[in-house]
Design a protein around this nucleic acid. Structure first.
Length: 883
RNA sequence: GGGCGAUUAGUUCAGCGGGAGAACGCUUGGUCGACAACCAAGAGGUCACUGGUUCGAUCCCAGUAUCGCCCA
């Protein structure tokens, strides 16, 4: 009693107070810094670098929580852990933000100039990088800041140039004219996967192009009538009998008046529409290919901003959609356009700006993907030691399918913020030079204006951050390849796939052994969180309200691998409740520690049934939690911890521990305190990766050894402390206590009311076991008188219950309603009848008895015996009551 | 058109060959020394549908339906 005032834990868990200053302590003591100790086994995770555009969203919180859990476990398991932080310059997104900021001051980037604009972008980067680091700190991420990197820093820029030049020299990068996805809003090229296809209700415009010789016309159709201004052919299928006589003839393009040829090409689908297709090589990828085969002219009719150019004749200067309206009107008037159908079709939109993407002829840089993809696919067909393991493994199919159907990657972007392409053009000779360094006579050259796709640098992240191309570097040697990459399924193509082929090409090995794929955080209705819906949840708001530990536990345990998770505040609150429970269980233990030190912990003394049982359960929990975290199943691991802590430790062990703690037996007190301290210590260690702040706080107050729980050892099963036989007695006690509580609830006899209790033990052994533990029965059942015997005569008017190995009678003369009790017992009997019937049927089946594994059959026989015994007793009891 | 996922208690989700689980919500009762954001007891489910494999299917296979995602 006298010790209870010393405890430093308030009765309610307050995350703000617990988390304050804790992260700084970890960082100051360099607990997250990798040692670079080559005698230790390394374990590496590189953070997926967040964009420096702004704040982290809740998806980042999920992603990094998983990484932090994995690295904290590995650190506790003795690995030399590197969790490497960093950020991504995010070309388009960041430039857009900086430009938006500039616009407020009325200045365009062109007015400002490239150099000054980049300076502003760097200022922006510094500001947001600091903001992001604060958010990492709030989430408790164990990052090694001494190795933090940025995709545009000197080292990574060097790696990017090295990769570009090497690929160029092997003809794996080329510059060429091609139909690319053009975003007229941001005025840059996009790679194929930056285009989102959405079904849009549009129109199918049917037109007749007149034959030049005046003998008729040919019908074509299009969804984009304005592109007709750039038509340079009409194509039909070579086998199409309808058009045989027209092949080689020409039509006169309406409005423009250009004479264009009718060509035959088996790309054309005879069954679709009229079977004749207008060909616009400068504005459609398929038409471009067809144009190459037939050596067609390429007529570009649009400017980069989406307005019509000089080739559009009288439409020059009009916006593309305005032009469409006008051209439809004009063609209708002239009778060329004779039919407009409603037509649902997929239209590409810029993933960044949302603008409708224009297939556009342009000179860009490309990666020649086929050889790189082939090697990556081959890697995946190698041994377990060579291939990348996707978790869940179904994502490997997604990845392989993409790799096997790869298309060239457009890597140039018409931006300023990014890695400028290391290519120079001679001012006089127009000769092109590609190299890591600028030509010596730089005054005669102009560098390519464009920068590289941001993903081109992120693709190198697992090795460029480890000082590649210096392959002799200590960190590269020790920490590469990395162990686990954690990311969402939405960027398998953007990032994961590209890291794999780049690493295969430049290091001849995988960049990481495992890829843990998670889903998206959705809102409570299951919708994707988005700015336009305004349904996003700021993880920092969650941390402010419930603490980082609650958020982390919710995110880590809220779903199964690869599945999406819905955000509900109630679930975060439930996590808080769990932590509050842990907090109070710890508080109880600390109030009763009586100054116990770590070295005083003594588990060798006489142990109670409860002691044996909780230690046995602890072992089982360590085993299950470890098994599940090893396979990245944090949901299951969390559930094992939750059940053990709340149901076993709090609801049963603590309640039972109160008996010795409030008693006079000093040896029993020491053992109980030791077990409380030991179990809590082990619990805190297992919980720590999930909820680092609160476990550190509690662990520091518990008897402990070592500087911080961050570097404490992960628990291992201790067979010396397992005692299943004794733990089984606990199960009988629990069954009896539950039955008594059940009956008390039935007859409205609260625990505070003393009632006589009789227990009929089926064997002398059971009787002894119950006698030895009658102190628990006294405490939890509150009997006026407790009789345990093997020869009890059932009282006439009594409530009763049957458990395995014993019958319980509660003679409650004044309270019992015979009719109700009979009804209750009959319901019980019905349940037992069903069970017996089910087991009988199973055991009567020869197929089952002969083919099922022996232990399953034995278990069924055991159940049959148990159910039948219980059933007989219940039957007898009903008879007694009715007579 | 091709591929993938989901369908289990009122709600949100686990489980995935051998007696249907959790959280929240709901009903009843309980504050005396960790916690009322707590404790105790309880109600609530043809595991979407149809076949197949198996001694045995919520679980494996095939198909159907509905919803969602990715690719073309």
């Amino acid at each position: 009693m006298s010790q209870q005032g010393d405890v430093n834990l308030p009765p309610k868990y307050d995350p703000q107070a617990v988390e304050k200053g804790r992260y700084q302590y970890w960082v100051d003591n360099k607990l997250f810094e990798a040692e670079g100790d080559t005698t230790k086994e390394p374990f590496t995770i590189v953070i997926p670098p967040p964009n420096v555009t702004g704040k982290l969203h809740i998806g980042h919180a999920w992603d990094t929580t998983l990484q932090d859990i994995i690295t904290r476990i590995k650190r506790m398991q003795g690995y030399d852990v590197l969790y490497l932080p960093g950020m991504d310059h995010a070309g388009i997104a960041t430039q857009a933000k900086v430009e938006a900021k500039l616009r407020e001051t009325g200045v365009s980037r062109y007015e400002l100039g490239r150099e000054s604009f980049l300076q502003q972008a760097w200022d922006w980067k510094e500001e947001y990088a600091e903001f992001i680091r604060e958010q990492w700190a709030k989430l408790g991420l164990g990052l090694d800041y001494s190795r933090e990197r940025f995709t545009l820093d000197d080292g990574l820029s060097d790696a990017v140039r090295e990769v570009f030049v090497q690929l160029y020299e092997k003809d794996l990068i080329y510059r060429g004219e091609y139909i690319i996805n053009w975003d007229p809003a941001t005025q840059t090229a996009l790679s194929d996967i930056e285009v989102e296809y959405k079904d849009v209700q549009g129109h199918f415009y049917h037109m007749k192009y007149p034959l030049t010789d005046g003998t008729g016309d040919i019908e074509v159709a299009t969804t984009r009538p304005e592109t007709m201004l750039g038509d340079t052919a009409v194509a039909v299928h070579p086998d199409d009998e309808r058009y045989q006589h027209l092949i080689g003839k020409t039509v006169t393009l309406p409005i423009i008046g250009r004479e264009i040829e009718i060509v035959a090409d088996d790309y054309v689908d005879m069954g679709f529409g009229s079977g004749a297709v207008k060909i616009t090589p400068a504005h459609d990828p398929n038409d471009f290919e067809l144009g190459n085969r037939h050596d067609l002219e390429r007529v570009l009719v649009m400017n980069e901003d989406g307005s019509m150019n000089e080739n559009a004749g009288k439409y020059q200067g009009m916006d593309r959609f305005e032009c469409r309206k006008q051209i439809v009107k004009d063609l209708q008037e002239s009778g060329v356009l004779f039919n407009i159908e409603e037509h649902m079709h997929a239209v590409g939109h810029s993933e960044r700006s949302g603008a409708v993407v224009e297939p556009y002829l342009s000179t860009q840089w490309f990666v020649n993907m086929q050889p790189l993809a082939d090697a990556a696919v081959e890697l995946q067909h190698g041994s377990d030691e060579e291939k990348v393991h996707f978790i869940p493994d179904r994502f490997e199919k997604t990845y392989l399918h993409w790799m096997e159907n790869i298309r060239d990657w457009c890597i140039s972007r018409q931006l300023w913020w990014g890695h400028r392409i290391p290519a120079w053009y001679h001012k006089e000779t127009k000769e092109m030079y590609v190299g890591k360094e600028a030509p010596a006579d730089i005054e005669n050259w102009e560098q390519d204006e464009d920068v590289l796709d941001t993903w081109f640098s992120s693709a190198l992240w697992p090795f460029s951050t480890l000082n590649w191309p210096d392959t002799e570097d200590k960190d590269f040697q020790h920490f590469f390849p990395t162990n686990t990459l954690v990311t969402g399924y939405d960027i398998i193509f953007f990032w994961v796939a590209r890291m794999i082929f780049q690493s295969k090409h430049f290091n001849d090995q995988r960049p990481f052994k495992d890829v843990l794929i998670h889903g998206l955080v959705r809102d409570a209705e299951g919708r994707k969180m988005s700015k336009s819906l305004g349904n996003g949840v700021d993880p920092m708001d969650v941390v402010d309200q419930y603490g980082a530990d609650s958020l982390r536990y919710f995110l880590a345990t809220g779903s199964s691998p690869g599945q999406d998770v819905r955000f509900h505040w109630e679930k975060v609150e439930a996590s808080w409740n769990f932590i509050n429970k842990i907090w109070n269980a710890s508080r109880f233990a600390l109030m009763n520690m009586d100054g116990l030190r770590y070295e005083d912990i003594d588990l060798s003394g006489d142990k109670s049934v409860a002691d044996h049982w909780i230690l046995t359960r602890l072992n089982e929990t360590i085993e299950q939690v470890t098994r599940n975290v090893d396979r990245y199943d944090f949901g299951e691991a969390g559930r094992y911890l939750y059940n053990f802590i709340w149901d076993d430790f709090c609801d049963w062990y603590i309640e039972m521990a109160k008996l010795p703690l409030y008693g006079d037996d000093e040896a029993a007190k020491l053992t109980t305190r030791s077990i409380l301290a030991y179990t809590l210590d082990q619990m805190m260690r297992m919980l720590h990766p999930f909820m680092p702040f609160v476990t550190e706080e509690i662990w520091q107050q518990l008897p402990h050894e070592g500087e911080s729980i961050v570097t404490a050892h992960w628990p291992v099963v201790n067979q010396d402390l397992a005692n299943k036989a004794t733990a089984n007695i606990m199960k009988k006690l629990v069954a009896i206590i539950r039955s008594v509580r059940n009956i008390r609830a039935e007859v409205d006899a609260p625990l505070s009311k003393e009632i006589p209790i009789l227990i009929q033990a089926e064997s002398a052994e059971t009787k002894v076991q119950l006698e030895e533990n009658r102190v628990y029965l006294d405490h939890f059942c509150n009997p006026s008188e407790l009789t345990i015997a093997t020869s009890i005569q059932a009282p006439e008017k009594a409530m009763s219950a049957v458990v395995t190995g014993a019958e319980i009678y509660l003679p409650l003369e004044g309270l019992i309603d015979i009719e109700k009790e009979v009804a209750r017992l009959e319901a019980e009997l019905e349940k037992l009848n069903q069970e017996v019937e089910r087991v009988d049927k199973k055991l009567a089946n020869d197929g089952f008895v002969n083919k099922a594994p022996a232990h399953i059959v034995d278990a069924e026989k055991e159940k049959q015996k148990d159910y039948m015994e219980k059933r007989e007793k219940v039957k007898t009891r009903i008879d007694e009551l009715q007579n």
